[in-house]
Design a protein around this nucleic acid. Structure first.
Lengths: 396, 396
DNA sequence: TGGCTTATTTTCCGCTGTCAATAAAAGAAG
DNA sequence: CTTCTTTTATTGACAGCGGAAAATAAGCCA
């Protein structure tokens, strides 16, 4: 997180405050007593932590809960005032930049997309700055300040340093994106890997709320995976983790760009599906939509291409489940457009390949709108805003 | 942890004390200043935490460090007094029970093994109790009390509850082993999965010291894997994790007892190697030693069997590395007896299959003496002794 | 014997979160 | 309409942890 201007910070002077706030953020309006139970604190601590947050406007008190227990003093529900602060999330792909404006509860207020003609860092930075400026201007209508900018990039990203180590799609190496973007926008900036950002969004605002161990699998051009273990997003000792796309499941499978045979991505990635679809049907298929159409038109062999892809994904998920035993796996990604073609095969092969209790893992799917990646970036910015302590506390 | 008698407990009234103690335990004798730095605390806090531990005899002060900086007041090294307390670790296999007596530093003082004729829980319990009694009697010579008993069992074990949910090798289901053993021995008892226990031993006393993300892979009858992520051992939401043995790497591979084809264990487990060795050489091979001998004798095809197994293990490890990005992978297990036949193939296929930075993961091997599994159980007991807080502090 | 340097201890001190008591806000009971 | 009961929220005293800074200790070196 870099910032040039002295930006507004979150008044979380103690871990307990941050924890209480995130509890309210994730679990909707709650009574103070309920918050105390969920956060493992005493009610007194909650009262004390909530007061400054109310005063600062980050929390609000609902007049009254509708459905009330007949007896006793009525409870006052505490909720996050989403309108108190705004955030911008940006996803940079090889072709375009997508930006969203969200509130503190990570609800999307506005979305913008701009095609990208030049992938050089400088050009991308300009586009990001322009979009940010545009959304910031629009944000004035909402009467709340924009307090952070999150940028999601695929590849090897060092979030702590704000540096994109290596992004194959953009052909970037060691770009200090957070620092550059902070200078041009004047906002605190978080840069993170796109899948990890999406995982943060699920952890705080999605299907991962309340779970300490889950995985997010994204299906699309690449096959990615974000892991949350012990309540924390896994980044890997060398900054890379969750490479489910390059889990090799079939030595006899097609050659992957990573040099191995039978990676999940080499079977179920968009490009792989297109290639195979061309081989099988003999037709010119140039995009995923066309491939899906062929399958829906019952063109001979077309469905089998998706079946094979689904099977590969299912086996990849089973591998994840066998290795760390998540409570839930959330499947998402642009590739889900073809989910009706996949679903059964994913689940079947997952069930077959999951060992013992790992099969008890709950496999869900979640549609992924095009702005969702950018929302992930916003979630990362929100997370950083809340947890980045104003007091310089090191961690061992 | 269940205990019938009021056992001696560790005076760790605050997390800082436990952390300081484990720092000294893992990182050998240290000056207080050094401990403070490593634990991220102030020197004052260390002094305060160390005092009661010295008084209770768990820590001791070395008169003086030999190699001293020329200048300034000489430092006083603080170390754990291993002789202060003893622990017993027991590993139960299908054939025998192995027990070790260790000191607080998890150094093995004595080891015993007893064949197992009856796998019923009652019979095993009797054997465990006998061995425990024997070691406790012998422990009197060391002039320190035995403060805990750890039992390691393969299969699905719920450590928190002390229950063996399901152990295929023993054919146990829902055996409340900790409670039973605590009743018969009067010691605090920890029951854990064998691979997890071994992982704890590596984390605290072995090659995992100081690492927050690493994996332990065991090669033998089964292929197992213990994971430490974010400094904690991964247990999985349903109590099962690290099933690297049932990661399927080749749909065309041999049928595994789990019902899938090409699991790592179905290629590289002891039984798989023996079966394949018989097929390839046409000889009667009944144990692993014989298989290793054939390979060493250059019997045609024999080396290839091990090569194939090594390759499977390497690919399994690469899968772990791709998904979690550990800093290190420690390979161990009885199967390492054949390591010279494996090594190259494991490393080659790991390097080939690891994606990007995952290949930077440090792959080590570590010989595994027969008592090592039991030592893991002792490590679990030690860990539990130190971290189980006397004050009932819940965690959310 | 001073001076210098580094290690350890001491002495406050702020701060956090708990405890126990109290206030608040209803409906229920008389 | 008052009083009781029940549940929620708040208050204020308090204990304890860990930090900062200053003091002290313990050697080397002139």
């Amino acid at each position: 997180m870099r910032s040039t201007s002295r930006a507004e910070t979150f008044p979380a002077h103690t871990p307990a405050v941050a924890q209480i706030f995130t509890t309210v953020l994730s679990h909707g309006p709650l009574t103070r007593l309920e918050v105390a139970r969920r956060a493992g604190l005493s009610p007194a601590a909650v009262t004390k932590a909530v007061r400054p947050l109310l005063a600062a406007g980050y929390l609000a008190e609902d007049a009254d809960g509708e459905a009330r227990a007949a007896l006793g003093r009525p409870a006052n529900l505490v909720r996050v005032d989403g309108g108190r602060a705004l955030f911008i999330g940006v996803k940079v792909t090889g072709d375009e930049v997508i930006a969203v404006l969200t509130d503190l509860c990570c609800r999307i207020l506005l979305a913008r997309r701009t095609p990208l003609t030049d992938r050089a860092a400088r050009a991308v930075l300009t586009t990001v700055a322009d979009l940010t400026h545009e959304l910031r201007t629009a944000a004035e209508d909402f009467g709340a300040p924009v307090l952070g900018l999150g940028i999601a990039v695929s590849g090897d990203v060092d979030r702590a340093e704000g540096v994109v180590r290596y992004s194959p799609f953009l052909d970037w190496r060691d770009v200090a994106l957070a620092e550059l973007a902070a200078m041009t926008t004047g906002l605190p900036v978080v840069v993170d890997n796109d899948v990890r950002a999406l995982t943060v969004a699920e952890q705080w605002f999605g299907a991962g709320v309340g779970l300490s161990d889950f995985a997010v699998v994204t299906v699309g051009a690449g096959i990615g995976c974000g892991l949350v273990i012990h309540g924390q997003v896994v980044s890997g000792a060398h900054g890379v983790a969750g490479e489910i796309g390059h889990v090799a499941i079939d030595p006899a499978g097609p050659l992957c760009h990573c040099g191995n045979h039978g990676c999940v991505e080499a079977i179920a990635g968009d490009a792989a599906i297109l290639t195979r679809m061309r081989e099988v049907t003999g037709r010119q298929v140039t995009d995923s939509a066309a491939a899906v159409a062929l399958a829906h038109e019952q063109v001979p062999g077309a469905r089998e291409v998706f079946a094979r892809a689904g099977e590969a994904i299912g086996r990849g998920i089973a591998t994840v489940a066998n290795l760390f035993g998540p409570e839930r796996v959330i499947i998402s990604g642009e590739g889900l457009a073809a989910y009706d073609l996949f679903a059964e095969h994913i689940l079947d092969s997952f069930t077959a390949a999951a060992f013992g209790s790992a099969a008890r893992c709950d496999v869900q799917t979640r549609p992924l709108a095009f702005e969702e990646w950018a929302r992930g970036a916003a979630a990362a910015a929100i997370q950083s805003f809340i947890t980045s302590s104003p007091t310089p506390t090191g961690k061992g």
